[in-house]
Amino acid sequence: PPQTPIRAAMTSIQQLRGELISTGDQPSTNLDKYFKNCTVDPTQDVLKRLETLEQTFSQRFGQAVGPRCVILGKQRFTLGVRLYYKVMEEMLKSEEKRLSVQNFSKLLNDSTFHTSLMACALEVVMATYGESSFKTGGYNPGGDDPAEADVCFPWILDVFRLSAFDFYKVIESFIKAEPTLSKDIVKHLETCENLIMERIAWRTGSPLFELLKQEHEGGAAEQVETPAMCY
């Protein structure tokens, strides 16, 4: 039978759900080991943060899609959490191999890291359901059809008050850690990257300007200290 857009979307959804069936709603034994290896165990903060993010996300999803869709938002979030845990574990495994380190306390106690990773997982889930795409993306507040509602990127950044700059940091590692992502989803994440690079990261208030200023000042200070070096 011909691969219609609806059938393609259904296939992607079934593939995503199939991938995440074995991943529970809680950290796996391996991931728990990484948490326990930390100087400061991040487990309680991770669970509390997820509760808060779920509340925020499902409320905002209901506002964008329709009041009866708050439950849909919770379902998306549940899938997102499984993907978040799965990808985090894979990221830590490859960092452990790369750095020969098992204590990731600083990273796993960084709220921005977790929020960015969770936002990316939700972006993948919504893109799979066709809710976040760069084709339709029409602004339709209150409309009950999720596919038409404005939950398209960068909506998720506003929901979690996340800077595009920080969200950008997890994208490549996310794709590397989850090789089963479909071609369309990888392309979607790459479009998010391009949008950030070309526009969003340069908006007023972006942390990028402060970082560039620090970098510039740091560079200028070096030049003053060692003028002879520059010859």
Partner: peptide
């Protein structure tokens, strides 16, 4: 899969991006 361009070098990873190296 879509030929995504991986830009991180071998000595770069999520730890460096979040200043946790």
């Amino acid at each position: 899969s879509h030929n995504y361009h991986f830009g991180l070098e071998d000595h770069e990873g999520i730890s460096e991006l979040f200043d946790c190296d």
